[in-house]
Amino acid sequence: MTCLYLPPVPASVGAARRWAAPLLPPDVRDDVVLVLSELLSNAVTHATGAPGAGAGAAGGVEEIEVEVVVDPGGGHVALAVTDPSDQPLPPAPETVPAEADHGRGLLLLAALAQDHGWAPRAGGGKCVWALFRRPRVPSRDGRAGARGPAVVRVGCAGA
């Protein structure tokens, strides 16, 4: 198992997409990678080491942790992004002005993930997570069957 740790810089978003995409089942890959991009972009923006952002004791910027878990039974994919910011996840806005450059990430999260949330970490920071249920694959007789091939867990143990 591997875990992806990234510095809170914009280039980390692309690195995380390239890391996660081959690990994901094709039927949910696009949605998971898009939500990963949004969550990591938010983490990069808010994990700057500024006062109150949850930076390390020495005032330095801590890394962001990304975890992807693919259910071995094929039923779901879970995504978690942990950053050093203690700021709670705000509610998704009702609307975003068309001319706005930012502000759609939480709307995408709510639209694409079947469930999502966040939790504070005991040592500081927070973990934002999203759950994606995989569509059922019809069996040979036309009834709903398995959700696709089983794959192994990837990411960090105990994250």
Rank of each mutant, 00 (worst) to 15 (best):
V77M: 02
P97I: 00
D86H: 13
I64H: 09
I64S: 09
G103C: 08
D71E: 01
P84E: 13
A78Q: 04
V70S: 07
D83Y: 07
T82E: 03
V69H: 02
A58I: 12
V81N: 00
E94H: 10
S85V: 07
E65L: 09
V68G: 06
T95S: 08
E63G: 12
V77I: 01
E63R: 14
A78I: 06
V77A: 00
Q87E: 15
A80L: 06
A92L: 06
V81Q: 04
G59K: 13
G59F: 12
G103I: 03
A55E: 14
V96I: 03
G59T: 13
P72L: 02
V81Y: 00
T95V: 03
L79N: 05
V96A: 04
G60S: 13
V81H: 05
G60R: 13
G75M: 01
P72M: 02
Q87G: 15
H102K: 03
A78W: 01
D86A: 14
G103F: 06
T82V: 05
E63C: 10
A100G: 02
V77H: 05
V66Y: 01
G56K: 15
V68W: 06
G103L: 01
E67K: 03
P84K: 04
P91V: 12
V69F: 07
P97S: 04
V81F: 00
G74L: 06
E62M: 12
L79E: 00
E67P: 07
P90T: 13
D86P: 15
A55G: 15
G56T: 13
E63L: 12
G103W: 01
T82K: 06
P84N: 13
P72N: 05
V69L: 02
A100R: 00
G75F: 05
Q87L: 14
P84Y: 09
V77E: 02
G103Q: 05
T82F: 01
E62G: 14
D101C: 02
E67Q: 08
H76E: 03
G60W: 12
V69K: 07
V66N: 05
A100Y: 03
E63T: 12
P84I: 08
E62C: 10
G60P: 14
P84L: 09
T82Q: 03
P91Q: 11
A55S: 15
A98N: 01
A80N: 08
P90I: 12
E94G: 07
T82N: 02
A98D: 02
A98R: 05
G60M: 10
P93R: 08
E67I: 02
T82C: 03
V70A: 06
G56E: 15
D101Y: 00
V96S: 02
V68Q: 04
D83T: 05
G75E: 11
V61Y: 08
P88W: 15
G103Y: 07
E63V: 11
T82H: 02
G73P: 01
V61F: 06
A100W: 06
D83C: 04
G73Q: 08
L89T: 15
V68I: 12
P91C: 09
L79W: 07
I64F: 02
G73E: 10
